[in-house]
């Protein structure tokens, strides 16, 4: 008899199921679908911060900057672990009409460029804390789709060319003004570089002369008692560095030439610490490049 009971059971359960679906079909009730662009889920507004961090929100999303308060200190740019903030600040002039921030600080730099690349931002919130004026903040606005994002050509690398809409420019300085300032700053930089290159070349020449004289002195001193080993080492060194004008003896571990050069160069050039090694190995090339730079400048 399980045959008939199976059939009646099946029919009964099927009718029950159809009742359920028809109930949902007919009943005027709220649907679960969210018509996204028209409706959005509310952002939870509770704060989890205590005391000083009272405004600390649970949601960290789009970064915003209050440009009225920004003093161009680049603290956020340095703090950013992914380098998504790019700031260009130039020395302010009286025409720039620099104001006083809400904290009472006089702005001294013209922030010509303040770019946040939200395609690189990882929402770590590390940039907001170093800000002395509390002008860079994380907002709970998670919808990045809008028309008012500005495209900029200022990205250091053009690797995000398809994500340009996620690059936000906060500075209100006009592009012409920015370009003018940049050109001025570049000129000043180039002049400085040329100056430094000239100094460097002079120092190099002096060092090379000194080294040559010292080498000659040591060679004179060493020639009577040249062992086989040192001679072979010398020839090897010459083979390896044929372009070198003067090859130092291999047993001189503490090379006086390099030491002196380092001392001089570190005193003169702050920004280019890697330069001296290149210079010692290939002095011809470095001389050429510096000459070119000075010509261009």
């Amino acid at each position: 008899m399980s045959y008939i009971s199976n059939i009646t059971n099946a029919v009964g359960t099927l009718i029950e199921g159809m009742k359920v679906t028809m109930g949902y079909f007919v009943r005027p009730r709220e649907h679960v679908t969210l018509q996204y662009p028209d409706e959005v889920w509310p952002v939870p507004s509770r704060n989890i911060g205590v005391g000083e961090l009272d405004a600390y929100n649970t949601i960290r999303s789009k970064l915003t900057v209050d440009m009225n308060d920004c003093i161009g200190c680049k603290a956020c740019e340095r703090a950013c672990p992914v380098n998504c903030i790019h700031i260009d600040a130039y020395k302010g002039t009286p025409e720039d009409n620099l104001q006083i921030t809400s904290n009472g600080t006089q702005v001294k730099l013209l922030v010509a460029n303040f770019i946040i690349d939200m395609s690189e931002c990882m929402f770590c919130d590390l940039c907001t804390h170093p800000c002395p004026e509390d002008c860079i903040t994380m907002t709970p606005d998670y919808q990045f789709i809008s028309n008012d994002n500005l495209k900029t050509d200022v990205t250091p690398e053009q690797r995000w060319r398809d994500k340009d809409l996620l690059i936000y420019q906060f500075s209100k300085v006009s592009e012409e003004e920015r370009n003018r300032r940049k050109a001025e700053a570049d000129e000043a930089k180039k002049a400085k570089a040329a100056l430094m290159a000239a100094k460097k070349a002079a120092a190099e020449k002096a060092a090379a002369e000194k080294a040559a004289s010292e080498q000659a002195a040591t060679e004179k001193a060493a020639t009577p008692e040249v062992s086989e080993e040192t001679a072979r080492a010398e020839t090897e060194a010459e083979v390896i560095k044929p372009s070198q004008e003067v090859s130092p003896a291999p047993e001189e571990a503490t090379n006086p030439i390099n030491v002196t050069f380092h001392e001089k160069s570190s005193a003169e050039t702050e920004t280019e610490p890697a330069q001296p090694d290149v210079v010692t190995e290939k002095p011809d090339e470095s001389e050429d490049s510096t000459a070119k730079e000075s010509e261009n400048g």
Binding site: T21, M22, Y24, F25, R29, H31, V32, T33, Q35
Partner: peptide, 12 residues
Amino acid sequence: VSAFMQVRLGPM
């Protein structure tokens, strides 16, 4: 019909 039976909206 499927949407209404599943408390959805369907194509909108």
